[in-house]
Computed example of a mutant assay.
Amino acid sequence: MKKGILIIALLVIGGGYLYFTGTQGDFEPLGRLAFVKIANPDMYPGHIHSKLLADYARERGSKCILVVHYGGSSNYRCYMEGDVYILELAYVEKKQYTPGINWTEVWQEGIYGIPDDKWTYRSDGREFGTLDEALAYIKERAAEHGQEGPIPLVYHGTVRQGEIFINQGCGFPLYYKIARNEYGPIGAYLYCLKGMIFPYLNNPYRNFEIRNARSLQYYYTHNMLNYE
Rank of each mutant, 00 (worst) to 15 (best):
E148H: 06
D117Y: 09
P152E: 14
C64P: 08
E81I: 11
D42F: 03
S123A: 15
D132F: 09
H47Q: 09
P115V: 05
Q147F: 07
Y97D: 01
S62L: 05
E148Q: 11
D55M: 03
M80T: 00
A142H: 13
Y112Q: 09
D55V: 06
H156F: 11
G110H: 05
H49T: 03
Y121S: 12
D55E: 14
G129L: 11
W107F: 10
Y85K: 08
T98Q: 12
Y97N: 03
N167T: 06
E163K: 13
R58A: 06
G187T: 04
L131D: 11
K95T: 04
V92H: 10
L52A: 05
I86P: 01
G113A: 12
Q147M: 10
G72N: 09
I114P: 14
H156C: 09
G46H: 00
M43H: 02
L174M: 09
P185K: 08
G125R: 15
G110W: 05
Y137S: 00
Q96A: 04
P173K: 15
G113W: 08
Q161W: 05
S50A: 10
D42C: 02
G146Y: 07
F165G: 01
E59F: 00
A134Q: 13
Y112I: 04
A57Y: 07
L135D: 14
L52H: 14
C170L: 09
Y137F: 14
S74N: 12
K94H: 07
A134N: 15
K95D: 04
V84M: 01
R122C: 14
V68F: 05
E109L: 03
R180L: 12
E109D: 08
A54W: 02
K94I: 02
T104V: 01
I65M: 03
E182Y: 07
